[in-house]
Design a protein around this nucleic acid. Structure first.
Length: 411
RNA sequence: GGAUGGGUUCCCGAGUGGCCAAAGGGAGCGGACUGUAAAUCCGUUGUCACAGACUUCGAUGGUUCGAAUCCAUCCCCAUCCA
């Protein structure tokens, strides 16, 4: 019986989905320090929770003594990843991509230790931008069989909807990344979300064929809800790691509100809590499962935003939902003198200003449906307005529905 | 390049001259019920100065008292042929 290694840890926590050579890889991870990589396309200026599973994978591996490489795909993102996307590829400038990549890097540093070569950050634009088409076709293109690619699931599905040469080319570029990292850093393993399976496998095959060296592919579970939908969407969009794009309170609340069935999975994938504890929390019956949600929300928020911020979010949540009294940390919105003037302090205008409603019509509807409260009082008419004195000091707390609060005050 | 079929509101998808701000479903939002969960039921889902007005059905022009619906040109997408 071999000692428990990184592979076992990932397996136990439910990360593993597919692996090219399970036995072989497990053995390798048990006996030597392995350099591996995960790719990220910097198409936005912040990572979101979907990326977080990948970061956790890297963190577990690093803690087990292996060396992660975060590959920032400023080269591949330059033309856009077609996988599964139906929306138009939005073309971004090289400068924008570089900026986004820098943002990613900062966020990754919270979880991964990049000091002393313990982990690397590399940019595939470094080798993709200068690439020569003819050389590429001759050196790399010859190793790929179109008929075999077409047999792959991901392409098979696309066949009906049309498949461009570019989309198939994407696999070659990603495979080339792996080869390049193998040559430069001795990288032997590529990990990634399960939707990347074909692309990852392509790279491992390329190395095995071209270099006659071992290379491994391993995919991790995507973060989905129990009914198979992608997790991490809110009314305001994705659950971003950047608190400017998703407030700490919203972040905390997102996890506080996950469905019962998803708690255990989230705890296992997104936190470092020991598995015995994860299983215990996940098994709590009935109402007690809320304890697990509190732990999940607090732990994950602390991991991403720090203890102090997590504490504030928790305090605010308790004040609003659990009879707590400390209201100082609930989400707030400060109005400038002009905004006060312009809005006339009418409730619909205030709902829009505080982002609780997306338009004044929307706000009117909410009021008509009886979903808007000032303090504890239901707003009866859209013509209702506040007095300027209401906004003085701590201001007033306005609520939309059961769970969305905002404190409004004068700046 | 040729032929054919398409582009409708957040998504899918009906609508082929007035009754269309546009069926139905999904998703979202609000309400009831609950555990800040799920399921279920009800309501709602273009904008605004909101019992009224204004803007939307790929784009631009045109026909008509009146167009998402008809015509012209253009753009885009899919399938087949090259």
């Amino acid at each position: 019986m071999m000692e428990r290694n990184a592979y076992d840890i990932l397996e136990e926590r439910g990360f593993l989905k597919q692996c090219s050579h399970p036995e072989e890889l497990r053995e390798l991870l048990g006996k030597e320090k392995v350099t591996f990589y995960i790719g990220f396309d910097p198409t936005a200026d912040s990572l979101h929770i979907g990326h977080y599973v990948a970061l956790m994978t890297m963190a577990h591996m690093q803690r087990a003594g292996h060396r992660p490489i975060a590959l920032l795909g400023n080269g591949t993102a330059f033309i856009g990843d077609p996988s599964g996307k139906t929306d138009m590829r939005s073309l971004m400038s090289k400068e924008q991509l570089k900026h986004n990549a820098a943002c990613f890097q900062a966020q990754m540093s919270r979880l991964i230790d990049f000091t002393d070569d313990k982990a690397l950050i590399v940019y595939n634009g470094d080798w993709l931008y200068p690439l020569n088409y003819l050389d590429f076709m001759r050196d790399i293109g010859v190793y790929f069989s179109v008929s075999r690619m077409l047999a792959a699931d991901c392409y098979k599905q696309r066949m009906e909807r049309g498949l461009t040469f570019f989309e198939m080319g994407y696999m070659l570029m990603q495979s080339y990344d792996f080869l390049e990292l193998n040559r430069r850093y001795g990288c032997k393993l590529q990990m990634g979300g399960d939707d990347q399976w074909s692309n990852i496998l392509g790279g491992a095959d390329l190395i095995r064929r071209k270099e006659q060296k071992p290379a491994y592919a391993l995919t991790t579970a995507l973060l989905t809800t129990s009914d198979g939908k992608k997790m991490g969407k809110t009314e305001k969009g994705a659950v971003w790691l950047d608190k400017e794009k998703c407030s700490v309170f919203d972040f905390y609340q997102y996890w506080r509100n996950v469905e019962d069935q998803d708690v255990e999975k989230c705890l296992a994938l997104l936190t470092f809590l020991p598995m015995e504890e994860v299983r215990r929390l996940g098994a709590l019956p009935g109402e007690q499962i809320n304890e697990a949600k509190r732990v999940l929300a607090y732990t994950l928020t602390a991991q991403v935003h720090g203890e102090e911020e997590a504490q504030k979010a928790q305090t605010a949540a308790e004040a609003l939902f659990a009879g707590g009294t400390d209201l100082s940390n609930i989400p707030s919105c400060e109005l400038t003198a002009e905004q006060v003037e312009e809005s006339g302090l009418r409730i619909p205008d205030l709902l829009v200003l505080s982002n609780l409603a997306k338009s004044k019509s929307d706000a009117r509807r909410l009021i008509a449906d009886g979903g808007v409260f000032i303090g504890d009082e239901k707003v009866a008419s859209p013509n209702q307005a506040l007095n300027e004195s209401d906004l003085a000091g701590d201001g007033v707390i306005i609520r939309k529905g059961k769970k969305t609060y905002c404190r409004i005050r004068k700046a």
